[in-house]
Each structure stands twice: as structure tokens, then as C-alpha cells.
Amino acid sequence: MQLSDNWRPSASLELLQQRAALLRQLREFFWQRQVLEVDTPLLSRYGVTDVHLSNLQTEIAVLPNQPFYLQTSPEYAMKRLLAAYGCSIYQLGKVFRDDEVGPRHNPEFTMLEWYRVGFTMAELIAEVVELLLLVLGERMVVQQTYQELFQRYLAVDPLAASVSQLQRALSDYTEVADLAEREDDRDTLLQLAMACVIEPRLNIDAITIVTHFPSSQAALAEIAADDSRVALRFEVYAGGIELANGYQELTQATEQTQRFAIDNQLRLQLGRPQAAADTRLLQALAAGFPNCAGVALGFDRLLMIQSKKANIQSVLPFDLSCA
């Protein structure tokens, strides 16, 4: 990325007005539903364990030798609030992700994350769709399982296929065939298929909800009670881009402890730094965590789709290049 000395904003005044109107509209949406707005700290003693996420890190002068991490999402802190107070909450604010720069990525961006106590994944999906139709106007909504998408685009069952079957299915797509041939990690092949083959081919005018990701990609979602091969995790795509990711939230501390450990094992294999597990989150889950569903949605991307802008810098007052 080229840094710029230009003092001018990257978004037009019209876009900033649209941005302000959208922030207000979202707050109104949750106000009417009596979902409590919270603003948890962005600076925390713990970072994220997720193998593919990377925290920016800093230090506080009066607390030497104790790194603090800028949060990649308010998830852990919000879950501590859920455990303590058991009511539906949302946060609309900045988050930070290292290593993410591009037309759809800015290392500092705005996320809308909310948790609905007592909701199932299906109920939360219905609310996400309601919100998106309100913001984006009438459009087609398509809901498919992860398995159905793979069968449609790659004629392969993602829950059963072997590494070589996945490689063969991907060999028909020349832009990914080379990488698929030399890659032998199953989840990496599935992610390659999803991100580079399926996602670019989704209907750009529709809102697409993909549900039931493989349990190996459960992240912080519950595993389905009736099918241990899949997790109750969903993703939302609109305007050709990934917009939101949600779960039927994992509620058991023991299972969460295991997932943190698995993340760190994978980090070790990939030569990435270990990430200490947030013990306060584990304590909160152990203290009793309500059944709930939660989702995180990229606010800037939502604004990009609403305003038909292809580059995130057009919707930010100042993107990283001039920040």
C-alpha cells in the first residue's frame, strides 16, 4: 500500500452523511428491539487465539512488560457481559486487524456485533435478513447450507470428500488448480474453494446466507446436536462480498478451553506466535452462560454495498493510506 501525504479525506461529504445516517439507523433498529448498546474496551490484556487473525499490540507505560492488544472483535468482552447480566447486547464500534489491507480491508474498521439471548441460529438469521432488507432495500434472499453450495459449484461433498477428491474438484478451476495440487490441508482446500471459487460466483444482487459450516471450522459456534460433522455457524454474503459471520454460541467452558488449545496447536504448526487464552472468558462461561446466538457484521462493507462503492476507502473518512 502506498502511503499518501495528501490531507484530503478519502470519502466524499455525501458518503459521510450516508455513513452517519446508517449509524443512526442501526442504533434505532436495536433501540426499538430493546437491545442494549455497550462499548467494551478495545484495549485488552488478551488477544484472539483464532489462527488466521492477528492483533495489533501495544504497551501501557505504567504497566511495563504487560502487552495490551487492540481487539479484532468485541466478542470476548461482550460474552463476559452476557454471562454476568444475561441480556441481549450490541456494539457498534472500531476494531483492528493486522495484515488486512486491500479494496475490502482496512486494518481499522467498524464492526456491528450483536448477541440475542434465547435466540436460535434461525431466529438470528431472520433478524439479520430483516436488518439487511431495511438498509439495502428489497432484494432476493437465498439460504443454502455449506454442503449444498459445494455440491452445486464443485460437485463434491465438503463433509465427506478426501483431500484428493477436493484437489480433483478444484483442478477444473485453473486460477486455483496449482495451489490446490500442492496443498494437502483439508480445511485450507475448503477455504480456498469457498473464498476463491464459490464466493466470486454467488449472485451479486442477492443476499446469500450460508449455514452449517464443517465442524473443523466451527470457531466459537456450537456443534449441531443432530450432526456432529457441522457447526451452527453461518455467513452472510451480499453485493459479492462477505458481510457477516454468526453462531449459535458455544456455551461450555470445557469445550471452549479445548478450542483455544487447538488454535494454539495450529499456530505452532504454522509458525505463528502463541496466543494466551483469555481466562476471564473461560471463567465467565463456567459461571453460566445464557443460550444465545450472535453475529458480527462489517459496517463499512454494508455501507459499500448500500452506496455501490467498490473500495472501502470511499466510505471511510480517512483510510490507512492517509490516516
Binding site: 473464498a195 462477505e242 458480527a296
Partner: peptide, 13 residues
């Protein structure tokens, strides 16, 4: 172009 899913491996296309 970098393609980075919210959860998962990033790719360069």
C-alpha cells in the same frame, strides 16, 4: 488482490 475471509486462511489472487 488479497482475499481474506473473516474466519480462515487468506489468499492472494
Amino acid at each position: 488482490e488479497m482475499v481474506k475471509p473473516g474466519k480462515g486462511q487468506a489468499f492472494n489472487r
